[in-house]
């Protein structure tokens, strides 16, 4: 259970972080529904991966450290891993989308990856 005797500043800070994380995750996933095409939709979940996840991790570090009465920062592992891997998935999806729909008219035309200016 949540420790009942956490200090007020930690309570406020963790609550703020949780609410920020929840709101950002909700907005990021809403972007999946509201944005018009695949290339724009890739931008939505980056909200979850960056600040949404980051604030929840910070809140988790804070609460776990208070509970254990020492600094617990194992969550840094998840941060490092997500920072290293989330861009890879996004880039692969972006290139897959470009590769699979070369013929797209107008401003949003996917450029050939091998053309240079």
């Amino acid at each position: 259970m949540i420790p009942v005797d956490i200090p007020l500043w930690a309570d406020l800070l963790a609550s703020l972080l949780m609410i920020t994380g929840g709101a950002l995750t909700l907005i990021g996933s809403l972007g999946l529904l509201r944005l018009p095409d695949l290339f724009a939709r890739i931008h939505g979940p980056t909200l979850n991966n960056s600040l949404g996840l980051g604030s929840v991790l910070l809140a988790s570090i804070l609460i776990a450290s208070i509970q254990a009465d020492r600094l617990v920062f194992q969550e840094v592992l998840i941060t490092l891993f997500v920072v290293a891997t989330a861009p890879v998935t996004a880039m692969l999806l972006m290139r897959a989308g470009m590769y699979r729909r070369r013929a797209d008219g107008g401003k949003k035309k996917a450029p050939q990856p091998d053309e240079s200016t």
Partner: peptide, 8 residues
């Protein structure tokens, strides 16, 4: 905090 966690 419990309310914030429930909201999240």
């Amino acid at each position: 905090l419990p309310f914030a966690v429930s909201f999240a």
